[in-house]
Design a protein around this nucleic acid. Structure first.
Length: 495
RNA sequence: GGGUCGUUAGCUCAGUCGGUAGAGCAGCGGGCUUUUAACCCGUUGGUCCUGGGUUCGAGCCCCAGACGGCCCA
């Protein structure tokens, strides 16, 4: 009645036991000197006779992905971090004992090391002709299907190590992710930004409207919150005289999981003194072009079957403009709350009871416009009511000098000219605190320490946050955030 | 939180009208000295997600739940 997997594992354990009996079963003495991709790059075109004449000895190591035994000779295909390389093993070359091991102890999934000269087979494949072959790691559990890989999404996320072994395109996504982060650093470093690390545990959760994770520090006997955004600390650094700073790291929000939301996610947030939101829109465009160039993507990409074009300057449109357009009315008709409420009702948009004009406008925007913003576009003119940390617009007190960048119907970046008037900031916090008292769980706390920091004088500045996960999704055509986060959060597994 | 689809061998998947649960790969045994998802012969392996119900009989129908996907909030 033993389950088949247990049967497979039992067989492999017996093989491991045989290996243990003769000495070190997990040796760490083999030193790989060559990677598969190097060898194919160097000798992809060298013909059979030339390779034989060269007699170039190589040492490769990797996981056995394919195995073909034909009596007194056999082939294995090894996978190393660079790619795959085939090896040819023969009793006459590696010795009868080693050959018997190969036949009786090696399995697909094991990690092995092979030494010998390069050759080309009759069918033309570059191959290491083994003179020595050594089993380095016995894998006790079997690999997924050797050619169809691992397809079950749940298993892929829960056992990401297997997903990575089995699926080349998954490895590619995470290499691109690393490239993106590197390119971001290079971009900001080149422009004189200082990379900093600010606290992830906050005494008051601030910088964004979101529910935080709560934790407790024992020896301080203090409630702490995992940060929902680094904003208020980065601005303190502006006060301190670091006038260009950026931070690439995790934020945490205690909200639902979805194809676009993981409870922990990565942002790059940056602040620049003596700049305003228009400067940051320019900078953001330069950043996008930099990323596309670093990834050799040209000036457009495909996401979810749609062509996204970054060749032209990114248009800048106001929220009022696009909402009026979507509602099929004149901008003047959405300038007052009562009229806007009627339009929202007509469009089937529900807003929290008693909310003001600004919140209402934003709700209509999010419900009826956002998803349609496929090509890159900056939306400006965000209401002050939903932007408690942004500088008010000089020409309209109801609005702020804020923008968000939308691509493929998704918010990718959020930036604004910073509010550096401490008294105005205190008023905004007070309004948030009142909302919180009336039951808005996402409203911000009044952060007196932050206001006190502003009272020491923060230079005029602008700041922005970009969702790194969403950026990587866009650049790798990944439909969900789980495809770009190595170990996404899932419910506790079934037992 | 609501709707909806899914869960069958280690992996990838079939499973008809409700009538003894299948294939390929992997594994095991045998053959094969340049193979290519190697091939040929033989073969092991099942809590059909869980628990109830209907039925002479349930992988299949009904109810509840778990986990996952998608949509909505």
């Amino acid at each position: 009645m033993s389950a088949p997997e247990d049967d497979i594992i039992a067989h492999r354990r017996r093989k491991l036991a045989a290996l243990r009996e003769r000495g070190e079963a997990f040796p760490n003495t083999f030193r790989r000197r060559h990677l598969a991709a190097e060898l194919t790059a160097r000798h992809g075109a060298t013909d059979k006779a030339a390779l034989e004449a060269l007699d170039e000895r190589v040492e490769v190591a990797g996981r056995v992905m394919l195995r073909r035994v034909m009596g007194k000779a056999g082939f294995v295909t090894l996978a190393d971090p660079s790619g795959r390389i085939q090896c040819y093993l023969r009793g006459a070359d590696i010795g009868d004992d080693a050959y018997r091991d190969f036949r009786t102890l090696w399995d697909i999934g094991d990690i092995v090391g092979v030494r010998g000269p390069l050759m080309r087979t009759n069918k033309g494949e570059l191959t290491v002709h083994a003179e020595q072959a050594e089993l380095l790691v016995k894998a006790l559990r079997p690999l997924p299907d050797k050619h169809r890989g691992l397809a079950d999404q749940e298993t892929r996320y829960r056992l990401r190590h297997l997903d990575l072994v089995a699926n080349e395109d998954v490895r590619r996504v995470f290499r691109v992710r690393a490239q993106v982060v590197q390119a971001l650093r290079a971009f900001f470093d080149d422009r004189g930004f200082l990379e900093v690390e600010t606290p992830m545990m906050h005494p008051i959760p601030g910088g964004a409207a979101a529910r935080p994770f709560v934790t407790h520090h024992n020896s301080l006997d203090r409630t702490l919150y995992l940060r929902v955004a680094p904003e208020l600390y980065l601005k303190r650094l502006l006060v301190g005289g670091f006038e260009r700073v950026y931070e690439i790291n995790r934020c945490f929000r205690n909200e639902g999981l979805s194809p676009r939301h993981n409870p922990e996610f990565t942002t790059v947030e940056f602040y620049q003194a003596f700049a305003d939101y228009r400067d940051l829109m320019d900078l953001t465009e330069a950043l996008l072009r930099h990323l596309l160039a670093e990834l050799s993507l040209g000036d457009s990409l495909t996401f979810d079957g749609q062509r996204i074009d970054f060749g032209a300057p990114v248009p800048r449109r106001t929220m009022k403009e696009v909402v009026a357009e979507a509602a099929g009315v004149d901008e003047a008709e959405i300038a007052e709350a009562p009229k806007l409420a009627e339009i929202a009702k007509r469009l089937n948009v529900r807003a929290p009871a008693g909310c003001g004009w600004g919140r209402l406008l934003t709700e209509v925007f999010e419900a009826r416009v956002e998803a349609r913003l496929v090509q890159p576009v900056f939306i400006t003119g965000y209401p002050a009511e939903v932007s408690p940390l942004a500088r008010g617009s000089a020409d309209d007190p109801a609005l702020t000098d804020r923008f968000e960048l939308f691509v493929a119907g998704r918010e990718v970046a959020n930036g604004f000219s910073e509010l550096n008037d401490p008294e105005e900031q205190a008023l905004r916090f007070r309004a948030q605190a009142e909302l919180k008292n009336r039951g808005d769980s996402e409203a911000m706390h009044f952060d007196h320490d932050f206001v006190a920091a502003l009272e020491h004088g923060m230079p005029p500045a602008a700041g922005e946050g970009i969702g790194v996960d969403r950026l990587v999704m866009l650049l790798t055509d990944s439909p969900t955030i789980r495809e770009v986060v190595l170990f996404p959060q899932l419910r506790a597994p079934k037992r």
